[in-house]
Design a protein around this nucleic acid. Structure first.
Length: 683
DNA sequence: AGCACGCCGACT
DNA sequence: GTCGGCGTGCTC
């Protein structure tokens, strides 16, 4: 503690701890020696509760006097003088955590990579150099007497010229960005050539066009894409029109030093485009003028770490806090975005309709031809593909090997099992020696215990199997595979069957000459609230890789999903899906919170809810170690519910008497709350 | 999480 | 009398 007189300055800090009871600001006296360097955003260490116990913390504010009644402790030390937590990021992190009933420090851990001393040193040296250079410039300006001293000393970059937005003639998208409007923009299903000879998705060009409009106004733009292959499209498009100084790549695929460097660069004095995956939405940028989220329905936008906030929601919060323009750009529309359109929050923007892909739904009829029959490709699809292969590559989309492809006896159909441990057998490629998925034993000379057959065939298809079978269906044609373990970004223009699992489709120059969408029935069979939506999105994204007027054959699927794709009325499909969810009161028509913990903990948490919300609880049901309940509520009640449940989480964390009651097994914590997880609806 | 404070049983 | 048990509460 510090003597009674008031300190020179008071730092309000957030302690870097996941404990919910510490998730608020604490005041510390700033030692006189540190007053110059303790500014908002720097990392410090602080004593907590008793001297000797030191915690890391973020300085969030520096004020003259504390409102805390008691005496203040002094900051222990300055960890680094670099303010890595920008004020707008702190504000966003707080809002994101509050919305999800989580801790701000958990969000900050996602927003700020671990400290990199070398990167910091370089940054500090550069800042020092710039400061002395600008001091010289000021001196010169003074000498010149009337020189415009207000001019930014380092506006070295030429201004950005706003690109025209192509393909959206009926809507003034440029005006929407300048006016800080919000829209759900349907992407153009087209590939466009770059000057450098690459082909990129038209959505990437659109995103970059929109970004230049923001930059031309002196604002930053934040572009969030699902994965690194999408990132490559955007970076290619950006490199054509902007100098490297205006492009900041910030994504979780980078090394920590690279991420740290990017974080510091994002706070540049010049307007920049910050582009990356979901984490980019937490990038520092005080003058964000535009936020673009590309294909928001992609699963990689769901944050797997506490507090599990979806990038879409982070984008919404950020856009509202900083009054930015906001664009959700995608081929297929997510039900979440459709909801925002239907409540009038987002404008509904469609491109010129003439780019619509040529979709041919085809029943799963057996093919006559021997080769095609073997790969279970209907004759229509096979003929389309074969004709297209005369001119260039053909894309074949298959399901992810969800339940791993299994081997069965080709004669009697019994599942082939490991003779050693009874585990399922797998085969890396056709003809390879089958191996056990559990114990790894090679099943050399396998014979079926039922019928003594020795030939194997795979069931429950995966990409690898399909590649082999497709190779046989198109004799003499090159087969290229892009799957979970090896995702290709592009292929070249020569005839080839390109087999890709959903979401891993490479780009072909000028587009594929035909696209076959296989496994549709199997994909739709998955039990999940969002299957239909996910399938349509996957098909639409693949269809968008076709050359203009090339056939896109959707195999073996009928009903609303097939109709949606064939008519390319993707928003209408999302609207129908949303209507179904509304009837059932399922997300995203309503929000949900999953409450797990001890029977008592869950019961108490539910009691803390408003009566009408509690009445809509599903459960509690018993799960290993305790109970689980799912609370449903309207969006308007979100803050209220989050606050109530968060208060219970804090109380449960502080109150440790209960922990003793649960002796059995791996006990759950007394109470855990997770918002907007649809997992409980998966089965 | 850690760590101090506090109010009841065996001990120099 | 008081050392220390762990139940209880708090962290500027």
């Amino acid at each position: 503690m510090v003597p009674g007189r008031s300190p020179a300055a008071v730092a309000r800090v957030l302690v870097d701890s996941p404990l919910p009871q510490l998730d608020r600001l604490f005041d510390y006296a700033v030692p006189a020696a540190l007053v110059d360097e303790v500014v908002p955003g720097v990392r410090v260490s602080v004593p907590l509760r008793s001297a000797g116990r030191i915690a890391d913390a973020w300085v969030v504010e520096v004020v003259a006097e504390s409102e805390h009644g008691g005496e203040l402790s002094e900051l222990e030390a300055l960890v680094s003088p670099v303010p890595v937590l920008a004020p707008e990021v702190w504000r966003l992190a707080r809002a994101v955590a509050d919305r999800a009933g989580g801790s701000a420090s958990d969000v900050l851990r996602l927003a700020v990579p671990p400290r990199q001393v070398r990167v910091e040193k370089a940054w500090l040296a550069a800042r020092e150099a710039a400061a002395s250079a600008s001091a010289d410039a000021d001196a010169d300006a003074d000498a010149d007497a009337d020189a415009d001293a207000d001019a930014e000393p380092e506006a070295a970059l030429p201004p950005v010229e706003a690109l025209p937005v192509q393909h959206y003639r009926s809507t003034d998208l440029a005006g929407l960005v300048r006016g800080r409007g919000r829209a759900a923009v349907e992407a153009v299903p087209l590939l466009v050539p770059t000057e450098g000879g690459d082909w990129i998705a038209a959505w990437a060009a659109t995103a970059v066009e929109l970004a230049t409009i923001a930059l031309a106004d002196g604002d930053d733009a934040i572009l969030a894409v699902p994965d690194h292959r999408d990132l490559e499209h955007v970076l290619t498009a950006l490199a054509e029109v902007l100098p490297p100084e205006r492009i900041v790549r910030l994504d979780s695929g980078q090394s920590n030093p690279d991420r740290y460097r990017a974080l510091l660069r994002a706070r540049s004095d010049d307007a920049v485009v910050v582009v990356g995956n979901r984490s980019v939405l937490l990038a520092p940028s005080a003058r964000t003028g535009l936020v673009v989220v590309v294909d928001d329905g992609d699963e990689s936008f769901a944050e797997p770490l506490a507090p599990y906030v979806h990038a879409r929601d982070t984008a919404l919060l950020r856009s509202s806090q900083q009054s930015t323009a906001l664009v959700f750009l995608s081929h297929a529309r997510s039900t979440d975005v459709q909801r925002l359109v239907e409540i009038g929050f987002l404008a509904d923007v469609r491109p010129d309709p003439r780019y619509q892909p040529h979709v041919v739904p085809t029943a799963q009829q057996a093919a006559q031809d021997g080769f095609a029959a073997q790969a279970r490709i209907p004759s229509t699809a096979w003929q389309e593909a074969r004709a297209a292969l005369e001119h260039g590559p053909v894309l074949v989309q298959v399901a992810r090997p969800g339940h791993a492809p299994r081997l069965a006896c080709a004669d009697c159909g019994d599942i082939a099992r490991c003779p050693v441990c009874g585990g399922p057998l797998h085969q890396r490629s056709a003809g390879a020696v089958p191996a056990c998925a559990w114990c790894g034993a090679l099943a050399v000379g396998w014979a079926c215990p039922t019928c003594e057959g020795t030939r194997l065939r795979s069931v429950g298809s995966g990409a690898t199997r399909t590649a082999d079978e497709l190779g046989r269906a198109f004799p003499g044609v090159k087969v290229v595979v892009s799957d979970g373990s090896r995702r290709l970004t592009r292929v070249d223009d020569e005839p080839a069957v390109v087999v890709a699992v959903r979401g891993a489709e490479p780009v072909a120059p000028g587009g594929y000459r035909a696209v076959l969408l296989l496994d549709g029935e199997r994909m739709l069979a998955r039990e999940s609230l969002r299957v239909a939506e996910d399938c349509v999105r996957g098909w639409a994204n693949a269809a968008a890789l076709a050359a203009r007027r090339a056939p896109v054959v959707l195999v073996g699927v009928g009903g609303a999903p097939a109709a949606a794709l064939a008519t390319w009325q993707l928003p209408r499909f999302a609207s129908g899906e949303l209507a179904d969810r509304r009837d059932l009161r399922f997300p995203p028509a309503v929000r949900v919170a999953t409450v797990t913990g001890t029977t008592e903990g869950v019961a108490r948490a539910l009691e803390a809810l408003p009566d009408d919300v509690r009445r809509e609880t599903l459960g509690p049901v018993e799960v290993p170690g305790g109970d689980r309940a799912v609370v449903r509520f309207d969006y308007a009640r979100g803050a209220e519910v989050a606050q109530a449940l968060r208060a219970e989480v804090v109380r449960a964390a502080v109150d440790r008497r209960k922990a003793l009651g649960q002796g059995r097994g791996r006990a759950l914590p007394t109470l855990r709350v997770r918002f907007d997880d649809v997992e409980p609806f998966a089965d």
